[in-house]
């Protein structure tokens, strides 16, 4: 059976000032129905770009190659009209910054209800009722009052709850949450992660959680993909990845998780060295310059993503850490 979302050989290149800048390089991944997948990597690793491409949200100067199928139908390069049959209803997205992601001059009620008016053909009155109900479900206090408020009258945490509610209105099959907690206060972060987990249990949709923070992804996902410099470097079940990461980069990331008892950091502590810059030659393993285990072969031959034993554990490394 074909997975719910199937991405094959996806590449994204930006043209800027006459230069081609690759952001995503031949990424293939699949998300099954009801599955929860975490995508982890530093900023610039291309993790957001993959899903922006799938949602048809990339800027005009981005060139996309590859194939994206959702529910068995192509959704890449099909044009906005065909894409809108699933976009916003069956396939939805929650963005990083709830401060700027809601339209400032429309009430919360309008912004929620229009999704149902557009996708489910409901009347505005019905849609507003359903929207109020949804606000209640995502634990927004006083939903009736919120409906007629404007985004700037809500706190960041509430706005993110509204965003999540908005993504759930049409009973989606897959919700993509792009760093949903990064822009929020530490105390609010946990609540939002909680809410995502609860809603997934209640509605049974699949979830892709994109984050630079393995700690955020840990409790919420079945499977984790680690991206580095536009490629997937490791993929494993969540528990297995935490117990025995095989890629040296993943191992470094794990070291960066702040302890559960200590204060959580806003930004990931930096790894030694710099991630590759866009102009750098694309040869060998992109992580080699920062890798303690790197050998000459790592700089010339690119390691393919291969089975690494265990249940569906895959890693792209010539010298993976022992299991």
């Amino acid at each position: 059976m074909e997975p719910l979302l199937n991405i094959e050989d996806l590449s994204v290149d930006y043209t800027h000032g006459g230069m081609e800048i690759p952001a995503v390089r031949q990424v293939s991944l699949a998300v099954a129905a009801r599955e929860s997948v975490g995508i982890v990597g530093e900023s610039g690793s291309g993790k957001t770009q993959v899903f922006m491409a799938a949602m048809g949200l990339l800027a005009a100067n981005a060139a996309v190659r590859g194939r994206v199928r959702f529910e068995g139908g192509d959704i890449l390069g099909v044009g906005a009209e065909s894409l809108n049959r699933v976009r916003g209803s069956k396939l939805t997205m929650v963005f990083q910054d709830p401060m700027t992601s809601l339209t400032p001059h429309l009430t919360i009620g309008t912004q929620l209800a229009e999704v149902l008016v557009c996708h489910a053909g409901r009347s505005w009155r019905e849609a507003r009722n359903a929207a109020r109900h949804m606000l209640d479900r995502v634990r927004v206090p006083e939903p009736e009052r919120r409906m007629s408020q404007y985004p700037h009258e809500l706190s960041g945490g509430l706005r993110q709850r509204v965003m999540i509610g908005m993504s759930l209105l049409c009973e989606p099959l897959l919700v993509i949450a792009d760093e949903p907690t990064t822009a929020l206060d530490v105390t609010v972060q946990a609540h939002i992660i909680d809410l995502l987990g609860t809603m997934r249990r209640e509605l049974g949709m699949a979830l892709v959680l994109i984050s630079h923070d393995l700690g955020v992804v840990a409790g919420l996902t079945d499977r984790i993909l680690v991206m580095y410099a536009g490629r997937i470097v490791e993929s494993a079940g969540a528990a297995e990845l935490f117990q025995q990461a095989r890629h040296p980069y993943t191992a470094e990331l794990l070291k960066c998780i702040p302890s559960l008892t200590g204060p959580r950091q806003q930004r990931m502590p930096t790894l030694l060295g710099q991630p590759p810059r866009p102009g750098d030659p694309d040869e060998g393993c992109a992580f080699a310059p920062r890798c303690a285990r790197a050998a000459p072969r790592c700089r010339t031959v690119r390691p393919p993503l291969e089975d690494a034993g265990g249940s569906a554990h895959r890693v792209a490394c010539h010298f993976p850490l022992p299991s």
Binding site: N84, S89, M93, F95, D97, S101, V115, C118
Partner: peptide, 14 residues
């Protein structure tokens, strides 16, 4: 702006 990205992601017609 980000809110236009949201509006497009909601699947609204142009």
């Amino acid at each position: 702006s980000h809110y236009i990205r949201t509006a497009i992601a909601k699947g609204l017609p142009l």
